[in-house]
Simulated assay, not measured.
Amino acid sequence: MSQLIKLEVLRVLRNRRYLFFTVLFPVMMFYFYATGFKNQMFNDISYKTYYMVSMATFGTVGAALNTAMRISLERKSGWTRQLRLTALPGWAYVLSKVVAAGVVTLPAVLAVFGMGAVEGVRLSAGTWLGMGLLVWAGGFVFSAAGVALGYAAAPDAVQPITMIGYMGMAFLGGVWFPLTGGLKSIGQYTPIYLYNELAKSPLNGVSVGAGQVAGLVAYLAVFAALAAWLYQRDRKTI
């Protein structure tokens, strides 16, 4: 399983589309927002810091959901069928996909945080570390979602479904702008909103919210269970 994870990570890091959409694009968007809003504030947090966290989570979710497209291509090419003929257990294949997706989310976090430091975001070492760990750990929720989506959608349809879901969740999750009013009443239950709020909790010395953690753990359990069920269903059709 460790070899499969290693191969998966190396394959992803060689993918130029991955590097652009999950690393360079969030960095460019953060730079656009940082120079546009400069020193404006929102709820005692500078917009520059707000968008740094949002773009880090945006890139992380994109890297995690990209797993869906890789799985769909493997299903189409017959690679998953070949793996099932080996001694690799089914649970190890699914787990390797989730772990590999968690590893490849790190470049997005490091790149956006690095640009944040360059653009003048000044935080204590503990705050940087706390936010980084929360962003990275929260990404596993979407890694499980990516595995489930890879088995749920047909290979030819997975890319548009992933992009629509990705952008829709980002909109309702407050990635592009802070949510208020009726939009917040809906968006606050989405996984990306919970993810963003959890990631921003160290900024004002606020303890990690139990509700946010519980919500993300619930989403993780649902996505993981769905991924396992869809994997078994796909296995029976071959």
Rank of each mutant, 00 (worst) to 15 (best):
Q188K: 13
L220M: 10
Y50P: 04
G59R: 04
G78T: 12
R70I: 13
V213W: 07
T49W: 00
G139R: 09
V27R: 09
N43Q: 15
V61H: 01
W229T: 13
L172F: 15
V53G: 01
F37R: 05
S124L: 09
G130M: 02
V94Q: 08
Q40Y: 15
Q212P: 02
Q188W: 05
R70E: 10
V213Q: 00
F30C: 02
T57S: 14
A63N: 01
F20G: 14
E8N: 15
E74K: 14
A137M: 05
W128E: 03
Q188P: 07
L133Y: 12
Y51I: 11
V141G: 01
G59F: 08
M29I: 15
R11T: 15
F223W: 05
V12G: 01
Y231R: 07
S54E: 11
N43D: 15
E197L: 11
M131S: 08
M28C: 14
G150D: 00
Y189K: 04
M167C: 07
G138V: 10
V121G: 03
F42D: 06
T180E: 11
V23T: 10
A125T: 12
M28P: 01
N15Q: 02
A225Y: 04
Y50M: 04
G174E: 08
G78Q: 10
P202M: 04
A63I: 06
R14Q: 10
E74L: 09
T67G: 02
N66C: 10
G78S: 11
T180A: 14
F32H: 09
A170G: 00
L73W: 04
A157E: 07
G146L: 03
Y51S: 07
Y151F: 15
L24F: 09
I164T: 14
M55T: 03
T67N: 11
V23Y: 00
W229V: 15
V222S: 06
V208C: 02
S72P: 09
I161V: 11
I161G: 00
Q232T: 15
Y189V: 05
M1Q: 03
I45Q: 12
E8W: 14
G150E: 02
L95A: 10
G187E: 03
A68V: 03
T67P: 03
G209T: 09
V222Y: 11
P160S: 08
G173V: 04
F37Y: 13
M169Y: 13
T80I: 14
P178H: 05
V98C: 07
R75C: 05
Y47W: 08
R81G: 09
A154D: 13
W136S: 01
R84N: 12
L10V: 13
L73S: 13
N66V: 06
F171W: 14
L88G: 02
A145Y: 10
R235Q: 13
T86G: 06
R70H: 12
K236H: 10
P191N: 03
G174N: 04
Y47P: 05
Y51V: 07
A145I: 07
K38H: 12
A221R: 11
G62N: 00
A153L: 08
L183F: 12
D156I: 10
V158S: 09
K236T: 08
P160E: 10
G78F: 05
Q159I: 11
L85N: 13
P26A: 04
G132A: 12
A92S: 12
F142S: 01
A227W: 01
M52Q: 01
F42Y: 15
